[in-house]
Nucleic acid binder design. Sequence first.
DNA 1: GTCTATAGTCGGATAGAC
DNA 2: GTCTATCCGACTATAGAC
Lengths: 235, 235
Amino acid sequence: MSLIPPLSTDSRLLDVAVDHFGRLGLDGASTRSIARDAGTPMSSITYHFGGKQGLYLAAADHIAAHMRAQIAPTLEHAERLYGDQNDGTQNDGTQHDGTQNDGIAARATLHAIIAGMVAVMLQDQTAAMAQFIVREQADPTEAFDRIYAGCMAMMLDRITVLLQQASGAWITLPQAKMRAITLLGQVMVFRIARATVMTGMGWTHIGSDEAAVITRTIAANLDAIIDHLQAGAPA
Amino acid sequence: MSLIPPLSTDSRLLDVAVDHFGRLGLDGASTRSIARDAGTPMSSITYHFGGKQGLYLAAADHIAAHMRAQIAPTLEHAERLYGDQNDGTQNDGTQHDGTQNDGIAARATLHAIIAGMVAVMLQDQTAAMAQFIVREQADPTEAFDRIYAGCMAMMLDRITVLLQQASGAWITLPQAKMRAITLLGQVMVFRIARATVMTGMGWTHIGSDEAAVITRTIAANLDAIIDHLQAGAPA
DNA sequence: GTCTATAGTCGGATAGAC
DNA sequence: GTCTATCCGACTATAGAC
């Protein structure tokens, strides 16, 4: 919320806090270390955020904002390319005919979103954020509510609606949401179970080649699932 | 390893340790609390396990053993039903003809394994274990190696081979392993992102109905993926 | 084998100087 | 707004009684 460039005390504290809280948890992280890494005395945390807990909640908001900022451009770009799914007009102003084109556009939008999510998951800086979120899922506090409302709800809902459109509305909304969650799992596993992926695949790092393999695999699964749903076989 | 029923000091310590280390991590958990919950003085940890780190590694082995014990029966049962994939004989002694039957048997075995894994993930007691494993993936120590070697390698490899057989060998081994990992992700998400699932689906608990919905959804995705691969469209 | 007592370190909160 | 100094509680490890 600061107007000063990117180096104010509270902004530095937030970045360090996300990293430390993510890696160590609320109890595990120490305000002393966070303050030291941010180059400020410990009592500045009390001054700016009211205490450890206040900093923790601010870190949660910071994570939600980061995720939103990373995903939003992909979402907008995809929907600009393939047309808004919610009205009957393409971005060039022509009408399209409903189910068929909607399905194709929805599928393409889904591919773009999934690719964007994979890219975010492969960023180094999302490691701590992912751990923060995972910890909050295991024992949700107010921080989870903020992250859920701040970015997860939007992403899940968007993917759910697109899946329903892409499958030709053969499935109910809860069924589509379940599919959206399994898609989330397929993307998430490459962040959360990174060590298993590296060991299992025999990879030493994840470069552009490995990233492409990951994206292609999930994209192929997505196509398989949509085709299956279009064939009218909801489970 | 104790021969005394199920209540020896070290056995109680191990159970409590898995829970505490899982929820709080190596640094976050305290030997004081673990000892207190196990009803034994803190110094018994030094005596039985050499210290905090020793207890931590023992907890990792305990987790691997638990997972193996939970999954092994499902694996054996499935392969007893549908025949061993590695030789040419059914369990009734008759020969089968190769690709076609192998594919059907492999698919059925995969369904049984996935259902078993989902059931394990929905157990309350796997919450702490999953968190333990997630934490080790983010910053692997010797504990991860033990868990990977102790159960994950076996499960991943088995699923990989079965996927290859079920798809009629249209895909390479690395491609099959990638699919196995995405399957793992679909199962995992219902444990790791439990709060998101509950909020997103509007569930208040996961009973047998919800468990059935989860299993059916992943099973449908599995069929979709296998069908897609059989059609000869590897990504 | 089991337990008590203690040494030494590090944590968060806070008061108050500047 | 920024920083120092201090209080008090919790932690691991260890020595040694029984």
